[in-house]
Design a protein around this nucleic acid. Sequence first.
DNA 1: TGTACATCAGTGAACGCGCGTTCACTGATGTAC
DNA 2: TGTACATCAGTGAACGCGCGTTCACTGATGTAC
Lengths: 236, 236
Amino acid sequence: MNWRKDKDKDQARERGYHHGNLREALLQAALDLIGQKGAAGFTFADAARMAGVSPAAPYRHFRDRDELLSSIAQRGFEQFETALSEAWDDGRPDTMTAFERVGRAYLDFARENPAFYSAMFESGIPLDSNSTLLAASERAFAIIRAAAERLAALAPPGVPRPPALMMALHIWAMSHGVASLFARADGARRRLPMTADELLEAEVLIYLRGLGFPTDRRAPDAKSADDKPSPAGKTK
Amino acid sequence: MNWRKDKDKDQARERGYHHGNLREALLQAALDLIGQKGAAGFTFADAARMAGVSPAAPYRHFRDRDELLSSIAQRGFEQFETALSEAWDDGRPDTMTAFERVGRAYLDFARENPAFYSAMFESGIPLDSNSTLLAASERAFAIIRAAAERLAALAPPGVPRPPALMMALHIWAMSHGVASLFARADGARRRLPMTADELLEAEVLIYLRGLGFPTDRRAPDAKSADDKPSPAGKTK
DNA sequence: TGTACATCAGTGAACGCGCGTTCACTGATGTAC
DNA sequence: TGTACATCAGTGAACGCGCGTTCACTGATGTAC
């Protein structure tokens, strides 16, 4: 992270002819630029300048601007998956608690990584242009889907078990809606009677109640043994 | 609508020195371009060319690209408001039916006017840069809010009446989430087990059930006289 | 351990391009009388 | 109804700029022997 913009020339002189990690530096620079000016207003040349390198250098690492952008989106999905999956923690200590944590992690990610988020969802690069990009996005969604699956399995007796895929899509839509309308610093924000986190949490809780889940904060598997408890330690 | 792109030169010759309605033509051209290439990749010069006019001409009508873009967003919000408010139809024939219609209208608007939608929500122009733009967006949101207000008033006895503003925000977030993730033609679409409309309708129904509203399709005011019936005719 | 050589990863100059913007201008339209 | 004049809404040429991209090049690094 020491190839940031400050004192490009000096650093360039220090580092000598070879950069050492230009690919990484370009990704970082592009990320910074997207953060500053949005996914639209970032240029290949700008990224090179920020990395302290000639405008021709990036071509050694990326075919063009789009390839750089889609690399960023891909990395974004990977980090997104990591964040969500850590939050989910395989449903520990109980499905409901873990699930709420996933919601918060979603918003945190959007808030803390606006550049990634917009490369992923707002940059206009088609997901299916690149199969590894598509795969990365599928893996991220799979976390939400897995959580929905476990949640669906908790449907109380007598309540029809909701289709997990539908639940996952609903929850994703709520999260994305709240994130892009209310949780971003840039532009279209709006006075809210509560924080974006609270808004999303309330929304998801109401939604789950609508599916027939009990309305109190802890899910049934918190005390019963419906859901086999995690094998050892960690729960503390 | 006869100043479209085809045969610019001929038309320019026909129309003579003065265009007659250049401001309008530029808005239309920009809208077309945004539809084709996204809000990012549209240029002032392009719009002029498409309107069959010299690159200096637009400056008679818009200070710069941003002003043109925000005019489009503003008009978008106005049409959005019209669409939502027609769908809402002041809650006729009953609150619930009208409410569902609003949801469909939301998605229809996003689907049928992707250019407007992205100028409004994804172009990065700050809403508060322009007070008439802000006002237009407020008026559009006010429809959703008014509908939520009426819906909240229907809460069955014994059920705590939900805060209407929160409901409105939740519903907006769901609609926007579904619209931008699943209802747009461009880019990040995904195989769905159902249409975007069905997905949103199910989501909203589950949400409302979670608030304690009855789960069958017609709201209580459909048959009772809680909600004073519309004064005359029209309902047919 | 040293040397020759291939390969890699950058340079920097150059190009064509389209954009945004300005400018003096001019044709068309509206208005006073 | 006609004429003089002001104003409006466009022209087209010109500019500086930064971008994307190519090219022959060169310094640094790795490797065979």
